[in-house]
Amino acid sequence: MADPVDPSLVQLLTPEGERVEHPDYQFDGDDETVADLYRDLVLTRRIDTEATALQRHGELGIWASLLGQEAAQIGSGRALAPQDYAFPTYREHGVAWCRGVDPIALLRLFRGTDQGTWDPDEHNFGLYTIVIGAQTLHATGYAMGVQRDGAVGTGEQGRDAAVVAYFGDGATSQGDVNEAFVYAAVTNAPVVFFCQNNQWAISEPTTRQTRVPLYQRAAGFGFPGVRVDGNDVLAVHAVTTEALQRAREGSGPSLIEAYTYRMGAHTTTDDPTRYRLSDEVERWRLRDPLERVRAYLRRVNAVDDQFFADIEAEAEVLGERLRAEVRALPDPDPATLFDKVFVEQTPEIAAEQDEYQTWSASLEEEVAR
């Protein structure tokens, strides 16, 4: 477990809720901004809690929990500018929240009523990638396109764009991720690689995957890396803000290792008690990303009890809406699987769709007889 006083770990808010200084990074928001971040953290956790419960009741096929990783996602998600683009894995529910994606859109994926769509103009957030590490190559290619569009290093606010690729510690062992590092480095692509090191690649600990801290791998590819306390939303925001600005200015890629912990299961099909000790989980509960922000807000008297009550009430309303809307989702027409394979449907795909619809209609006739 990383020592919180280790200078390699950027920290601006201690687990006890005390603000601390760092020589290279500062959080530029005020206490009102911190309160807004707390709201994001609470509501994101509620989305996660509701989705887990819905899966347990058979309403979702599976769910990948972000419990314990909220600060890494909210801190980085709120650092993104509107023109930046995010490429997530299957666990970035907090980043989706920050990008304005309705949580029901995520739940449709896990219910199987939506196969995912590509709409770069809506939220600048690509819906989830299941193949481990593949999104890092997608992000790098997109970033190279941003370069070619002349949207890097112009100095025009609102035009210069950066790309962020999210992945976990387990993905760093994948070839796709390392290939993305190579391409990004040699093309000086405006991409930030954001690794949420939650210390478990399903049942495999990070110690079985690397001999050095993950952020140090960046040096071998020729770009900077930094390790940040992933349970400190202020530090994550500060570090990501700097990395994104560096990318927008044309200074190339960087790697952020958000050192955090997956307090829940890998997915709802996983039983983490089979491979990790309960006292390890309890130690990390003391570093809960929500509790440290709550402690800070109370310490400085930035908010009153009504503030916390209002957020809890808002979370209740959100939970009720998600439960109702998920259960009301209609079953999709299987023929729609063919609609969005490409931007424009090819003759081959159209023929396959016609063939499927003919077969489906014949089946219905058989049943009717």
Results as ranks from 00 to 15, higher is better:
Asp169Lys: 04
Val191Arg: 01
Val177Ser: 08
Val182Tyr: 15
Ala171Trp: 05
Ala180Ser: 12
Ala184Asp: 04
Trp200Lys: 05
Gly170Tyr: 07
Tyr166Gln: 07
Val186Leu: 13
Ser173Asn: 13
Ser203Met: 08
Ser173His: 00
Val164Glu: 10
Val177Thr: 06
Pro205Lys: 13
Asn178Val: 00
Gln196Asn: 15
Gln174Ile: 02
Phe193Arg: 05
Ile202Leu: 12
Thr206Leu: 06
Ala201Asn: 08
Ala201Phe: 06
Val191His: 02
Ile202Asp: 12
Val177Ala: 09
Ala189Leu: 06
Thr172Met: 13
Asp169His: 14
Ala185Ser: 15
Cys195His: 05
Ala185Gln: 09
Thr187Glu: 13
Ala185Asp: 10
Arg208Val: 04
Gly170Phe: 03
Thr206Glu: 11
Cys195Lys: 04
Asp176Phe: 09
Asp169Leu: 09
Tyr166Asn: 13
Val186Trp: 03
Glu179Asn: 08
Val192His: 07
Phe194Asp: 06
Arg208Leu: 07
Val191Asp: 04
Ala184Lys: 02
Thr187Cys: 11
Phe194Ala: 13
Asn188His: 13
Ala162Lys: 04
Ala165Trp: 06
Ala189Asp: 03
Ala201Lys: 05
Phe194Pro: 10
Pro205Val: 02
Gly170Leu: 03
Tyr166Cys: 09
Gln199Glu: 11
Pro190Leu: 01
Cys195Val: 05
Ala201Arg: 03
Tyr183Met: 14
Gly168Met: 08
Tyr166Ala: 10
Gln174Val: 11
Arg208Phe: 07
Glu179Leu: 02
Phe167Ser: 09
Thr207Asp: 12
Ala201Ser: 14
Gly168Leu: 08
Phe181Leu: 02
Phe181Thr: 01
Thr207Cys: 11
Gln196Gly: 07
Gln199Thr: 10
Gly175Tyr: 09
Val186Asp: 13
Asn198Cys: 04
Gln174Arg: 15
Arg208Pro: 13
Gln196Val: 09
Asn188Lys: 14
Cys195Pro: 06
Thr187Arg: 03
Gln199Cys: 13
Thr207Gln: 14
Pro205Ile: 02
Ser203Asp: 15
Asn188Ala: 11
Thr207Met: 12
Asn198Ala: 08
Ala171Glu: 01
Asp176Trp: 09
Gln196Leu: 01
Val182Thr: 15
Ala180Cys: 11
Pro190Gly: 04
Tyr183Asn: 10
Ala201Val: 01
Asp176Ile: 04
Glu179Gly: 10
Trp200Val: 01
Gly175Arg: 02
Arg208Ala: 11
Asn198Tyr: 06
Glu204Arg: 12
Val177Lys: 04
Ser203Gln: 09
Val192Arg: 03
Ala180Arg: 02
Glu204His: 10
Phe167Asp: 08
Gly170Val: 00
Ala180Gln: 03
Val191Phe: 05
Glu179Val: 01
Trp200Phe: 15
Val164Arg: 11
Gly170Ile: 00
Ala180Glu: 00
Ala162Val: 00
